[in-house]
Amino acid sequence: MQADYPASFERDTAGTEAEWLLRLSGACGACAVCVEGVGATVAIGTGRLFLSWSELPPRRIALMCMPRMTVGFRFEGVTDEVRQAFMRYFDLYMQRGGG
């Protein structure tokens, strides 16, 4: 999780597109999500979040191979306070780990 989320940024994420799509609506909470191709629009109040993604070459560490993607985030018409709260929830929901 980041300390601050700008109105537009990109991320390198682990996982496949299928895994991303399975978690996406849950990560957006009660906000409406419309997926079209390799992008999505999330309605956040009177504003929008535009998401775009593409697969990257897998990350290889020794014999381990991890799929990954790049994801672009672009908020329009969303206040800083709402954007920060949305992204904190989004990141916590998308967080994966073992233990």
Rank of each mutant, 00 (worst) to 15 (best):
E55M: 05
S8H: 11
T13F: 04
S25H: 09
F75K: 07
E10L: 07
D4T: 10
S54W: 11
R11L: 09
A14R: 07
Y93W: 08
T70G: 11
Y89A: 12
E81Y: 00
S54I: 12
T79F: 00
E36H: 11
T46K: 13
G45Q: 12
G99D: 14
E10Y: 06
E76Y: 05
D4F: 12
E17G: 03
Q2I: 09
T41Q: 09
R88C: 10
T13Y: 01
A40R: 01
D91T: 10
T41M: 03
Y89K: 06
A32D: 15
L22S: 07
V35Q: 10
R11Q: 09
T46R: 12
E10P: 00
S54V: 09
G39A: 14
D4I: 05
L49Y: 02
F9S: 10
W53Y: 04
P6D: 12
V78D: 01
S54H: 09
G29I: 08
M66W: 01
G97E: 02
V42I: 15
M87C: 15
R83H: 09
V78S: 02
L24S: 08
G26C: 04
L24I: 10
A30C: 11
C31S: 15
G97N: 11
P67L: 01
Y93R: 03
A3E: 05
A62G: 06
M64C: 06
G37K: 09
G37I: 14
P57Y: 00
G72M: 05
R48G: 13
F86I: 04
A18L: 15
E76W: 05
R74P: 02
R88A: 14
V38W: 11
C31K: 01
I61G: 00
R74H: 11
R59K: 14
L63W: 08
R88S: 14
R59D: 08
L49Q: 07
D12P: 00
D12R: 13
A18E: 14
C65G: 02
E55G: 03
F9D: 05
A43S: 07
P67G: 03
G72T: 08
T16F: 02
V35K: 06
M87D: 12
E10Q: 09
R96P: 00
V38T: 13
G47W: 00
M87Y: 04
L56K: 07
E81T: 11
E17Y: 06
